[in-house]
Amino acid sequence: MRSEAVPEHEAAASYGTPTDEVGAFLSRRREQIAQRWADEPLFRTVFTVSRDEAVEACRSVVDALAQVADSGRVEDSDSAGFTVVREQLARMTAARSRSGMSTAQVSGEVDALRAPVVNLLVADLPDAPPEHLRECATTLTVLMGTLRLVVMETALTEVQALIDRQQMQLLEVATPVIRLWDGVVAVPLIGTLDSARSQVVMETLLQAVVDQQARYAILDITGVPTVDSLVAQHLMKTVAAVRLMGAECVVSGIRPAIAQTIVHLGLDLGTVVTRAGLADALAYALHGLGADIVHATPGGAGQR
């Protein structure tokens, strides 16, 4: 363990407020704290390239804590001092979770940083009155607790970002567009429609209309269990947008229960073309395209 000589006069005499004292201590003992923390699992296992790398990371955290203490807001996890280390903390927690640690375990590792620094503080103020020492130790403990909170916040943010990403991917795979005929595209919807999914459905269908130059777009909701007023509104918006683009939208597969809900909610689907099933919707579209389906007559030429 390296140690550095500290001029005697700095550690004695006049005492500031506990936050000032803690801030001054963190700046003064920056190097020693960093050296001790670098051996703690949280830093040692994340910064594996060299010890210097770990020490450097520790220094940034100590600097951040010193800045927060100087600002006098040791209990505030939004304190500006934390801003610069947030990204580093996020990387560290991400690395720990990748190696299989639970959030609680990471929290424990952050907590393990507290004892070395508090011990150092006590050792650093040997002549201070016990009352003052206790206040400083409490302040430092609160500050370390805030650091732990910041780490937890960043960890949760990372988890949330992951969920967001996965949700987005799920939305994309759950919305296939099928080309049913030349100029007819369909989206069969399965599962619950929420606002975000309805948005993706609308965008996907509209893009398909352009790509395929489709004059008919069919939204089949056979696999949708319920339709509330918000979903109905989205359906109507989709129909309106398809019309603006110069195509026609047909909604098929409105099951009796959903039809009743729509009537019950007092929703007016008046302007929307609806058909019982996907086949009926396709027949409607083909008719519109001038291609009717007829039964093949025995001996006659097969017709589409």
Binding site: E203, L206, V209, V210, K237, A240, A241, R243, L244, M245
Partner: peptide, 25 residues
Amino acid sequence: GMRPAVAITMVELGLTLPGLRTALS
């Protein structure tokens, strides 16, 4: 030839141009 993003935005804005006919191209 209205673009999809334009159509979605217009619907959200409440502009559905009821008196106009539309075409893909």
